[in-house]
């Protein structure tokens, strides 16, 4: 079964359980294994474009690197006083000292982040947004009002992007700053958000959308035994990993 087909709610719950388990483990090897397994499963069990994986791995890698260096220098109980770190002359020695004592912590922090990111990337890249929300609606009892509200806002994004372009242009043709993060532009976008929410709500209601009433669904995501089996396998192998790799 491809990861894309895995029921999104089950996928989400599985990942959340794994995250909670991992957050109480301080095991570099386990973290790394999880990360590797995630990447491999993306490669073997999904149709994800490798370019997209790379695009998400870069920021995740940066975050992990940052955390690594942080752990290296400032791990708790570190032998280096924080103050001394600014001392450039001492640096090489200090780094060496730090390496010996803090490397373990640093690696732990960084690999943990990578493990999370691995799981997150699997979810982000193999889950169709609409399928996810529909599944939340049917499996997690997210009320339709919220589910369709989320979808509407999500699908409004390209409209917002176009509107932002127009707003920027209107500012520019009036000799005003059109930078997207300029307060005036942002406030205009904020105003537009309020306007959109009102019009969207009216449009949806006029098309008969009613949060409370009964409705049919053109497709209903279901949980199949396979979905659960995979979840059990994932969590099971995680727990097994803890015992095998020791903590």
């Amino acid at each position: 079964m491809k990861l894309e087909k895995w029921n999104p709610s089950v996928k989400m719950v599985t990942i959340l359980i794994c995250v909670l388990i991992l957050s109480f483990q301080y095991n570099t090897v386990l973290n790394t294994t999880v990360f590797a397994v995630m990447l491999l499963s993306l490669f073997f069990f999904s149709e994800v474009n490798p370019g997209k994986v790379a695009a998400l791995l870069v920021p995740a890698g940066f975050a992990a690197l940052g955390l690594f260096v942080m752990g290296l220098y400032y791990a708790k109980g570190s032998s280096i006083p924080v103050k001394a770190m600014a001392d450039v002359d001492m640096m090489p020695y200090m780094v060496r000292a730090a390496l010996s004592t803090n490397l373990h912590t640093a690696l732990q922090l960084a690999t943990r982040l990578l493990a999370y990111a691995g799981m997150g990337i699997v979810f982000a890249l193999t889950t169709d947004g609409e399928y996810f929300v529909r599944s939340l609606m049917h499996q997690c009892h997210l009320p339709p009002k919220f589910a369709y509200g989320i979808l509407a806002a999500f699908y409004l994004m390209p409209f917002m992007a176009r509107e932002l372009k127009n707003v920027q242009l209107s500012f520019r043709v009036r000799n005003m700053c059109g930078n997207a993060l300029h307060p005036n532009v942002l406030f205009t976008m904020l105003v537009n958000s309020v306007r959109w929410s009102e019009s969207e709500a009216m449009a949806m209601e006029s098309k008969g959308f009613c949060g409370a009433a009964k409705r049919t669904y053109c497709e209903i995501p279901e949980i199949h035994p396979a979905d659960v089996i995979i979840a059990v396998l994932c969590i099971g192998s995680m727990v097994a990993g803890i015992f095998i790799l020791g903590s």
């Binding site: 919220f146 806002a153 999500f154 976008m189 958000s193 959109w196 929410s197 969207e200 709500a201 009216m202």
Partner: peptide, 23 residues
């Protein structure tokens, strides 16, 4: 929650999600 409340918050969330990314 009315539908328009949901939409308002969701749209603001998208907007600021993008702002956060920009920042």
């Amino acid at each position: 929650w009315k539908l328009k409340d949901v939409l308002l918050i969701a749209i603001l969330a998208v907007l600021f999600g993008v702002v956060y990314l920009g920042c």
